[in-house]
């Protein structure tokens, strides 16, 4: 079972998020922290209308929705996010910070304990497993899966050398240094989606 994917850039910001079989709710971040393109959570109501939505938001309703993330996982998470003010769950920005905090502290701990530049690669809890892949340019890919699986670092490596190179690094429309927008590309999003759905353990 694959639950979710986070990508962090070298500024320690989350630039990409996607989830699949996740069942715990996540709330959209507050307007002040809403960054377009990182995720497809519905924007919170904002009286000033200052939120900049994804450049793909408008097309989504017509053509793209089915192709990208229409059918299942998103279908459940969407309504929860929209009506979920009262339901538990962390706002997305808080959650991303926690994920990054774990990456950083475990990484430092592994380094100190081993005395080498060792990286921690995964950890597991009774309910999920956390995989980390780090690139030389300090991009960090984090994948959450069910606890029974083997190491999925190879999946993240493939994602980096495949879809990420093709649709993000070689894409002049994506500003890799931007701190306001994430990886706002539907081509990348559907490529990630395809790759994850292609895994044998995607929903078993």
């Amino acid at each position: 079972m694959i639950y979710s994917l986070y990508i962090f850039d070298r500024h320690c910001d989350c630039v990409y998020y996607q989830d699949w079989n996740r069942t715990s709710p996540v709330r959209p971040p507050p307007p002040s922290n809403f960054k377009a393109g990182i995720h497809r959570l519905p924007p919170p109501p904002d009286p000033t209308g200052a939120i900049r939505e994804s450049i793909f938001s408008n097309q989504r309703s017509s053509i793209q929705s089915g192709a990208v993330d229409g059918q299942d996982g998103r279908g459940q998470a969407g309504p929860v996010g929209r009506t979920g003010k009262g339901i538990g769950g962390l706002p997305f920005d808080e959650e991303a910070k926690l994920v990054y905090g774990v990456v950083l502290s475990l990484r430092n701990m592994a380094k100190k304990l081993s005395g080498r530049e060792d990286l921690f690669t995964s950890y597991r809890t009774p309910t999920y497993k956390f995989h980390l892949f780090e690139t030389p340019t300090n991009y960090r890919f984090v994948l959450l899966s069910d606890p029974s699986g083997d190491s999925l670092s190879f999946v993240l490596r493939k994602l980096y050398t495949g879809a990420f190179m093709e649709y993000v690094v070689r894409n002049p429309l994506i500003d890799m240094n931007s701190r306001d927008i994430g990886i706002d590309s539907d081509a990348f999003r559907s490529a990630v989606d395809r790759q994850m759905r292609g895994l044998s353990m995607f929903n078993t």
Binding site: S24, L98, V102, M109, Y123, Y128, F130, L144
Partner: peptide
């Protein structure tokens, strides 16, 4: 870390 990892649970099984 142990405390935080419990909160990041993507499932509702807990």
């Amino acid at each position: 870390i142990h405390a935080i990892t419990g909160r990041l649970d993507p499932t509702t099984n807990s």
